[in-house]
Nucleic acid binder design. Structure first.
Lengths: 164, 164
DNA sequence: TAAATATTGGCATACTTCGCCCTTTTATAT
DNA sequence: ATATAAAAGGGCGAAGTATGCCAATATTTA
């Protein structure tokens, strides 16, 4: 599907939709300098190619009752592939975990967890995380202050020569 | 502005828009069981109250040329408030940093950085991060695999009694 | 340079948004 | 209980939007 890479118009479309996913196609077309028809076709193509993975409302965490964000480093016992896979699936299924990565360094996995408060985190830690199999160590790092959140991918940093 | 807290309809609206921010108001109204008018009024109210902070396209990272995600722990020299503030502003202004939190634990700040590749990260590290004032230690944790990304806030976990 | 291919723009129809106003429900005070 | 006030829901219509189709234009390839 993704036959060619992104040209300048694509990047401008992506940047605009990343900033405001509810732009009408007419507004978007106007902003990037196309008429609505080709603009919409490009958007559909980007969606089909997996460049655009979805459109999401960004919600205020404290406003929605998630007062606490915790970054959790988890070490697992030297993983055979099977175990690692089971662990990943288990983590993926936890609603409180909003992002999770296998990482290099101190921890094996780095999770971002959102909960209403410390009490909720305590339950989650003891009743869920600590009960996951193969977990050998857990370090909880509490977010004290949010400096930046949900920043856009810096498309303008890409070399301007992706599609000559 | 936020006079009352979220009722069940609000939560269903938020959940729907978090899943798909491009739902038409008619679709959304249908999904939550309202007619379009009151539905739109609720959405506008949620926006005005800061519960909905924006609508964003989620982009594929590798598809857009950001092959490398790095979680960076930064220690700063014992901070007076002024320094901490300057540091926060500096970090906020870096496009490569898509999220940043002041955290408890090992590091003082935890940054999520996206770059095209290791070469780009090397430049960013040496030319930007290491030149920030008051930095005493930097640990780079490379994302090897993404287990979950941009998960929705788990609204269904909230006690169903926020607004009786 | 010609043909093939991809991309753009215009147009028309169906659908959507959103202000206005009325009805219904819920809360408050006797 | 009942009256009253306040809040929320629903209907309607004008203006704006989405999107398929087709012709015109630009780009690539042989």
């Amino acid at each position: 599907m993704p036959i060619r890479s992104l040209d300048n118009l694509d990047r401008r479309i992506l940047a605009a939709l990343q900033r405001d996913a509810r732009l009408t196609n007419v507004q978007l077309a106007d902003e990037v300098g196309l008429s609505p028809s080709p603009c919409l076709r490009r958007v559909r193509r980007l969606e089909a190619a997996g460049v655009i993975r979805g459109y999401h409302a960004e919600l205020g965490r404290s406003e929605t009752g998630f007062g606490l964000t915790v970054f959790v480093g988890i070490k697992v016992e030297r993983h055979h592939e099977e175990q690692a896979d089971a662990f990943r699936k288990a983590v993926q299924a936890l609603p409180e975990v909003i992002s999770a990565h296998l990482v290099s360094g101190e921890a094996d996995f780095l999770l971002q967890v959102v909960v209403p408060d410390l009490a909720a985190y305590e339950s989650f830690l003891t009743e869920t995380l600590l009960r996951l199999p193969w977990v050998s160590d857990i370090r909880s790092n509490f977010a004290i202050q949010t400096v930046k959140q949900a920043g856009p991918l810096p498309l303008q940093q890409l070399s301007r020569e992706e599609s000559p």
